[in-house]
Design a protein around this nucleic acid. Structure first.
Length: 1079
RNA sequence: GGGCGGAUAGCUCAGUUGGGAGAGCAUCGGUCUUACACACCGAAGGUCGCAGGUUCAAGCCCUGUUCCGCCUACCA
């Protein structure tokens, strides 16, 4: 045994082999069966842009923890893995490389060639991601691996789109979108990062075309984007500036009345400013409002265009000049103004998709917007039309993908209607769970409200903090903003719509075609200019009509598309937002809408019914838990919920576990691009996968962020350098080695600098744990010999046996409860406390002598084997590799384990059962007895340490105690002797104080350790203890002297304090007596 | 500007309905005691961000305040 059990745990020798065993066993697969209890996790798909980082590691480990635990609990588990095509992110990366390596743009190589290259990129990174996940020990079902653009998912995307379209929930409209001029696509709000930039307010004068004497000759408007003036189509003034300003002043007065002293100066200043403004600005604004009513116009500088002065409440009398320029095509608020004044003012788009200005910009056409800005400002200044320029800081949206500033841009896009509909929306059409709700967003809000459940009785709950995250979820959905689902990209699911403006005759041809298609394979709408949809048969007049036609199935496309195109329709070039396909993930992966015909890849598990078992969709939907970080709540959780509710009438999952985000030592978000990111494979290589998992679980408490101090390994010295405090070099990715002043790089982007690997010593803790577990198991197994089971009579159990079993029962319960509460760190702490604190530090030491003797050895081995068995089970979800490896060895030494009966056996720990609390093991009194022993032992050890007695040297001791305490100690005095290194131990109510003995007072127990004494040292130590007791007595005494305390505090609290007071007084007497003995 | 969260030992974090401040790592002292020196034994270390308030009693509840993180917004 000793030979084939290495002294140290070498993780590299087991990791690959163990994972292979799991794979071959098929234990990771989800196979529908007769079990009612199932547990389903849909992996939040990593995108194929790059490799996984520490945040993914946390996410994957949390999922694996839950799935392994549930698998052991006997649930039928499915953990669905996969990757996301991540449209814009992936295309951006591949395009960037194309340009860097070959100097080509996507237009040079064309749509098909670009998509082909992206597929190759995807294959490469998908393989790397799978490698990382397997290295982390992820026990997902690889035989059902999905990709959001594979045949199974693609069919679901198309079907979902069709149904939304058919229900009139998808529309096409002109909207201002966030435009990425670099990638030339619309991006969603989520893809925008805000940065503070230094800028200016430019105050510009717009002269009146026809100012009469006594009237102002111009109005002044201010802007942070002067170039957009080329697209101005009006200037607005408030229709009733006086009233609004007075209302603002009144509002301020009201706030002043109740405002705290601190805020008063600011409020007063603001009130005074507005009061002053009343006289300086209002007369002019009233005059301007009158001029606007009179239909007066302004001359737009530089272009000379005549634009009206209009009345609109968007113009705020309390700000700026009180007038505001209106650029409907390039500002969301101005767009709203345009909607209100459609028939009075124009909307002019001056921007090309690439960020240059178009022909509407006159002489500025063809130049980039930044160039236009400079020239517009220069030209205005030359004409004396710039009144002033102020410095100003503003939060400017930048595209997360291209890092360039976002432009609001008017373009035709596709939207999903999120708001409430007049007739409501039918959810789960054709299912047993069908219901009607006001709108998509509202249903998703209701299901998390705690007040409404689906027909199956399900709802959505967040963990570990239900209120907080339900709050962010609901707040976002409550805005009910329509979801822009089109992207001007080439990589993604193409929108299956053919559209065009065609004659009545052609419309009728298309309608006939749609009518003839079986199973509603083609659906058409006629849209008016506002996007409102009408059924073709209800349209009146001769056209032409804007027609939208959706082909339901890809397989029909080759047949139907030519017919639509012959009728003058064209397929939309856009693709769908990535989140559209991600939102379907909880059921697209299961083969929805028809698992029987889902086209899985060769070698994959079919999703349809097999030999009488239900289909994956029927069996595994609705799922159980989504595990993710909080920044994805709106993107994912909300959208998956509403899609699941809409298409299947039930939630995609009932629980959402929000785990922490990982930050570096400075509290900054970890990211590859900042160079503070850690590759999980580096950690696995250095510390082992179990160590990494252990630490990640240990860090997952309840907080929202976790700081993980990051170090670089110096390429010069090999020393660790803390990146939170290290000095930067020439860029933020380079640092100075404090040992030699040399610079190094953490990203590997600077050619002439050596690259440093980034790691974190925080993972050492996990390695220490694994070593301990390994060694404890090694000890246990060496001592088990070849253990064969026989039923054990309870009389054979000694107190320490009953104690450790009682502790074990307690630990099993506590660990289970912590996992149920989504508290991995709490669960791990409990398990560790039992294993390390109870089993290793006490039980193993206590039974060492017994393992050598004949009488007590069998019981000790049986208990030891049961403890190790349970320890491995409890730790398995956290540290699966080492526990599985030790389980193999335990199985060899003690194939059948148990006390009265054998424990349920299993070849693989992964498939073994989760321990249950054994009520008969719980023994409060033995726990108290041992606790008393531990107190005495610690007191003796403390004395030994004070006198620096080597542990090899035995001492004599005498314990003076009374009543129950004495009985307990006497009963287990042999354990005290063993654990405290005592040779001769005497106990009694009155013991002879050994000559020259050190003394400790522990409760009402007095302990004398003979043979070690230093009078002065004893005096100092005892005096210190006496002072401490006196201080505490004083505190409690004060409390007990307080009549109000005695009156108002609950009786049990008062009694507790009294008891403690009495105990401390006894202790004080003992300490005092000992002190006197030294005088 | 609004919202959410955090501030507890040198570091990273626990602290569950208010009732004697905890863990791990790091530090210090001792020990190679028949699994483990990647260990064991012991010790030291905290005005619980700051200021008020409620209460017999506050790390915990309330108000204010400072700093940090995240989300969010249209302020000319």
């Amino acid at each position: 045994m000793n030979e084939d059990f290495p002294k140290r745990f070498h993780f590299k020798e087991i990791q690959g082999r163990i994972y292979q065993r799991w794979l071959e066993s098929g234990a990771m697969r989800g196979i529908p069966d007769e079990r009612e209890n199932r547990y389903v996790i849909m992996m939040p798909l990593p995108n194929v842009t790059g490799a996984l980082h520490m945040g993914h590691a946390m996410d994957n480990v949390m999922q694996d923890l839950l799935i392994r635990w549930h698998r052991m609990k006997g649930d039928n588990t499915l953990w669905m893995p996969g990757t996301d095509h991540a449209g814009i992110a992936t295309q951006a990366v591949v395009e960037k490389r194309l340009f860097e390596l070959e100097g080509k743009t996507r237009h040079d190589i064309g749509r098909d060639a670009l998509v082909e290259r992206i597929w190759r990129w995807k294959d490469e990174f998908q393989a790397r991601i799978i490698e990382q996940q397997q290295a982390m020990g992820c026990s997902c079902d690889w035989t059902v691996y999905r990709f959001t653009m594979d045949a199974v998912c693609a069919r679901a995307v198309r079907e979902a789109f069709f149904r939304l379209f058919q229900d009139g929930l998808i529309y096409r409209g002109n909207r201002l979108v966030n435009w990425d001029c670099h990638l030339q696509t619309a991006v969603s709000d989520d893809e925008i990062v805000r940065k503070t930039v230094h800028s200016h307010f430019w105050h510009i004068r717009y002269p009146f075309m026809d100012a009469a004497p006594g009237e102002p000759a111009w109005v002044t408007v201010a802007t942070t984007r002067p170039e957009t003036m080329l697209g101005d189509t009006a200037v607005a003034v408030h229709p009733d500036p006086e009233r609004v300003l007075d209302a603002s002043i009144e509002d301020l007065e009201a706030r002043l009345a109740t405002a705290p002293e601190k805020e008063r100066p600011d409020l007063e200043a603001e009130r005074d400013r507005l009061r002053l403004r009343r006289s300086t600005h209002i007369p002019k604004l009233i005059q301007l409002a009158a001029m606007a009513r009179d239909g007066r116009t302004l001359r737009l500088p530089l272009l000379g265009r005549e634009i009206p002065l209009i009345l609109d409440e968007w113009a705020r009398p309390e700000l700026g000049s009180g007038c505001v320029k209106i650029t409907p095509a390039h500002d969301p608020n101005d767009y709203d103004v345009w909607l209100r004044h459609k028939h009075e003012i124009d909307i002019i788009n001056v921007l090309n998709p690439d960020g240059t200005y178009n022909a509407h910009a006159g002489p500025y056409a063809g130049h980039d917007r930044m160039v236009v800005r400079d020239r517009v400002v220069a030209d205005l200044e030359a004409q004396g039309l710039i009144e002033k320029i102020e410095d100003h800081e503003l939060e400017l949206g930048h595209s997360d993908r291209s890092k360039t500033p976002i432009e609001p841009y008017l373009s035709r896009q596709w939207f999903i209607s999120m708001g409430d509909r007049p007739d409501g929306v039918l959810f789960g059409r054709g299912t047993a769970n069908a219901f009607t709700a006001p709108g998509l967003a509202q249903a998703a809000i209701d299901v998390a409200s705690g007040r409404w459940r689906t027909a199956s009785g399900r709802a959505l709950a967040f963990h570990p903090d239900p209120e907080r995250y339900a709050g962010t979820y609901t707040a976002w959905l409550a805005e009910k903003r329509d979801w822009c689902i089109s992207r001007q990209l080439w990589w993604g699911h193409r929108i299956p719509i053919w559209h065009g403006t065609i004659s009545r005759e052609r419309l009728e041809a298309v309608s006939r075609l749609a009518f003839e298609e079986e199973q509603e394979g083609l659906w058409t709408w006629v849209a008016d200019e506002d996007g409102k949809l009408t059924c073709p048969r209800d349209v009146r007049g001769g056209g032409p009509f804007q027609v939208l036609a959706c082909i339901r199935r890809e397989s029909d496309e080759s047949r139907l598309a030519p017919l639509l195109e012959a009728a003058g329709l064209e397929q939309d070039p856009d693709v769908l937002d990535t989140w559209f396909s991600s939102a379907l993930w909880p059921f697209s992966t299961l083969g929805w809408p028809d698992p029987d015909t889902a086209r899985v890849d060769p070698g994959q598990t079919p999703l349809g019914p097999q030999d009488g078992t239900p289909s994956f969709l029927d069996y595994y939907y609705p799922g159980s838990c989504l595990v993710t970080a909080r920044d994805i709540i709106t993107l994912w959780v909300a959208r998956m919920q509403l899609m699941g509710l809409y298409l299947l009438g039930d939630v995609p999952f009932t629980d959402c576990f929000i785990h922490a985000n990982i930050q570096d030592g400075k509290g900054e978000r970890m990211s590859k691009s900042k160079g503070n990111g850690i590759d999980p494979l580096d950690i696995i290589d250095e510390y082992g996968v179990d160590a990494m998992r252990y630490v990640l679980c240990d860090m997952q408490t309840g907080t929202q962020d976790i700081k993980l101090p990051v170090q670089a390994i110096s390429p010069y010295t090999g020393e660790r350098i803390d990146l939170a405090t290290a000095r930067h070099g020439r860029t933020i990715f380079t640092y100075i080695d404090p040992a030699n002043g040399k610079e190094f790089d953490v990203l590997g982007t600077i050619d002439d600098l050596p690259r440093a690997r980034v790691t974190s010593d925080r993972f050492e803790v996990g390695q220490l744990f694994c070593t301990k577990l390994w060694n404890a198991a090694r000890f246990a197994l060496i001592n088990l010999g070849r253990h064969t089971f026989r039923p054990l009579a309870s009389e054979e159990l000694r107190p320490e046996d009953r104690w450790i079993l009682s502790r074990l029962a307690g630990a099993v319960g506590k660990v289970t409860r912590a996992l149920e509460a989504y508290d991995p760190a709490g669960a791990l702490a409990t398990a560790r406390e039992f294993f390390w604190g109870d089993l290793c530090d006490w039980y193993l030491e206590l039974v060492k002598p017994r393992l050598k003797e004949d009488g007590g050895a069998y019981a000790a081995r049986a208990v030891l084997s049961v403890c190790m068995d349970h320890v491995l089970r409890l730790f398995h979800p956290f540290v699966p590799f080492i526990t599985e490896a030790l389980w193999e060895k335990l199985g060899e030494q003690a194939p059948v384990r148990g006390l009265r009966e054998p424990l349920p056996a299993c070849d693989l720990l992964m498939s073994a059962t989760w321990p249950e609390v054994e009520a008969s093991w719980v023994d409060e009194s033995v726990e108290q007895e041992v606790a008393a022993v531990q107190d005495v032992v610690r007191a003796i050890r403390d004395l030994r340490a004070q006198y620096q007695v080597p542990s090899s040297r035995q001492v004599d001791a005498a314990i003076q105690a009374h009543g129950e305490a004495l009985a307990r100690i006497e009963k287990l005095s042999h354990l005290v002797a063993r654990m405290a290194g005592v040779r001769a131990l005497t106990c009694g109510p009155e013991v002879d104080r050994p000559r020259l003995s050190a003394v400790a007072v522990c409760g009402d127990v007095e302990i004398h350790v003979a043979g070690v004494i230093d009078v002065e040292k004893e005096r100092i130590r005892l005096t210190r203890q006496r002072d401490k007791i006196e201080k505490e007595l004083q505190r409690i005494g004060k409390k007990l002297a307080n009549e109000k305390f005695l009156e108002k505090a609950p009786a049990d609290i008062v009694n507790k304090e009294r008891a403690r007071h009495a105990e401390l007084r006894g202790q004080l007497e003992l300490v005092g007596a000992s002190l006197r003995a030294f005088e």
